[in-house]
Simulated scan of single mutants.
Amino acid sequence: MAEEEQASETNNEAAEQQFIIQKIYCKDVSFETPNSPEMFTLKWEPELKVDLHTAVNPLGPDVFEVVLTVTVTVKVGDKTAFLAEVEQAGIFNVSGFEKTQLDAMLGSYCPNLLFPYVREVISELVNKGGFPQLILQPVNFEAVYAQHLQQRQEEGDAPATDAVH
């Protein structure tokens, strides 16, 4: 009987956990080509730098906005060819999870859901800016989140819902 009660408690916990996507939207977009048209006359040997930033904003009980900011800087030599920055956001209802699970959902799972949207927007911006196609490679947000947690522990910080990568 104890096994049945334990299984019943596990089922109740799982039934109480909810993850709902309310909305996914583009919060901010920026594209700059500070050295055009000169860039189009140079031999295309780009240096690519990608920066990721995740922020979590509580909106109410069990409701969170997660913002994934991706900044792509491409240089040819010492000149910036283009700079693309996209803030992709989502509003998520997340309830019934323990604190560590909630932090992982907001710091890893949600950015993973948002990333394909960012990749599409950046690809379109770069293409419309007259540059060769750019497709961002997948990001292992679980590994990035784990690295962020480790860094926070080493620094003695507790919250893990705002990550700079």
Rank of each mutant, 00 (worst) to 15 (best):
Q101D: 11
G90Q: 07
F40K: 03
L136R: 14
D157W: 10
E4R: 15
E120Y: 06
G107C: 06
R152I: 05
T71E: 14
P37R: 03
A163H: 01
D28R: 13
I135E: 14
G60P: 13
V74L: 09
E98K: 14
W44T: 05
L68P: 04
T73N: 14
K23G: 03
K79P: 00
D28T: 05
N140Y: 08
D157G: 05
M105P: 01
V139C: 11
A84L: 12
L42N: 08
F141W: 14
D62V: 04
T33H: 04
W44L: 03
W44I: 05
P132V: 07
A84Y: 06
V121K: 13
P34M: 06
S8C: 03
G90P: 00
A143I: 02
V50H: 06
R119S: 12
L149N: 14
S8I: 06
N57Q: 10
I20F: 15
L59T: 07
P34D: 02
V63T: 11
E98F: 13
V164S: 13
A84C: 10
Y25S: 06
E154I: 07
N57Y: 10
I91V: 11
V139T: 08
A146T: 11
Q150R: 10
E3M: 09
E120Q: 14
V118M: 05
P159G: 00
Q133Y: 08
T41I: 04
V56A: 03
Y117G: 07
H148A: 12
Y145N: 03
K49F: 06
L114T: 05
P132C: 05
I24E: 03
K27C: 13
Q18E: 08
E9D: 09
P46Y: 09
N57F: 07
V86E: 02
C110I: 12
N11G: 02
L102D: 04
